[in-house]
């Protein structure tokens, strides 16, 4: 089915889309749109994989539940984007998640960063949720109906992630001396990976109004983040940016381990259904 047909049935602009809707639509993306969907899908998949580790290990049981909610939202976004991307090459979300090799992943380095302690996880969540909110709140108005539909669902969920992370940034920054020290350290470890999120790649030019230009998000992101950090009486870390390269398949050392664990069972049984 062509994109036009699909939009006539279920995919209309502003209509929040779930993974099941995408799978049922059979809408086929252009190679560029598929690649862009991989960017966003891989970001969420890798972060959900990271956050999944916290479940049963959080600082308090209520927080186990909160982090699991966030991870579940991210898995949902990943499934939507990967399902859609897969339609370009006749692959399923699971083909893409479980049977691609490391250089075929398009996640940015930030999403691959280790959980560390709770402060470091919160620092990563703080950056990711603010970045994703700026991104999805614009992508939901994209000229591309499927990408807009996925973003329309994601933006509401990410808005809550933003709130969750900033609540914790405030508490850790102004709680005890130890928590402040850890929050500061967490932000410092996270900040080198911020720059990559806002780097424009040639793909963005090819997509035109369908995608959101990453560099255009930098200013609103900086303003939002600076406001929270000011309230928390924290400095924006002044650290040099890392090289990045995730969008071109050049990853941090962490991704190999993440994929080893993610893919081990599926790869033991190629072709099996679960």
């Amino acid at each position: 089915m062509s994109e036009a047909n699909a939009s006539a049935t279920r995919i209309t602009p502003g209509n929040a889309l779930r993974p099941e809707d995408i799978a049922a639509s059979h809408a086929v993306p252009s190679p560029e749109a598929a690649e862009y969907a991989l960017w966003l899908g891989d970001d969420s998949l890798i972060l959900a994989q990271r956050l999944g580790w916290w479940i049963s290990r959080a600082p308090e049981l209520e927080e186990d539940v909160a982090l699991a909610n966030i991870a579940l939202d991210l898995i949902g976004h990943a499934r939507s984007f990967l399902t859609y991307a897969g339609h370009a090459s006749g692959r399923t979300e699971d083909d893409l998640a479980y049977f691609r090799r490391e250089p075929e992943f398009r996640s940015a380095h930030l999403f691959e960063q280790p959980n560390g302690d709770f402060a470091r996880t919160i620092a990563r969540q703080f950056v990711v949720s603010h970045y994703q909110w700026e991104l999805y709140s614009r992508l939901q108005h994209s000229t591309h109906p499927t990408l807009a539909g996925i973003a329309a669902k994601a933006v509401k969920e990410v808005d809550y992630h933003r709130d969750h992370s900033l609540q914790w940034v405030l508490r850790l920054a102004q709680g005890t001396e130890e928590s402040r020290r850890r929050m500061t350290a967490g932000l410092k470890l996270t900040w080198p990976y911020v720059e990559e999120l806002f780097a424009d790649e040639p793909l963005i030019d090819a997509l035109g109004g369908a995608a959101v230009r990453p560099s255009s998000l930098r200013e609103p992101f900086d303003a939002a983040v600076a406001a929270v950090l000011a309230e928390a009486d924290l400095e924006v870390p002044a650290v040099p940016g890392a090289t990045g390269g995730g969008r071109r398949g050049v990853h941090s050392e962490h991704l190999g381990y993440i994929l080893a664990e993610l893919q081990v069972l599926a790869r033991e049984h190629p072709g099996a259904s679960w």
Binding site: R50, D117, R120, L189
Partner: peptide
């Protein structure tokens, strides 16, 4: 034995008991 949460921790040994009232 998970590989996704093993490194990068800056955590020193935790203190013994909590000083404050529980939530």
């Amino acid at each position: 034995g998970s590989t996704t949460g093993d490194d990068g921790s800056t955590a020193p040994a935790p203190g013994p008991a909590e000083k404050r009232q529980p939530w």
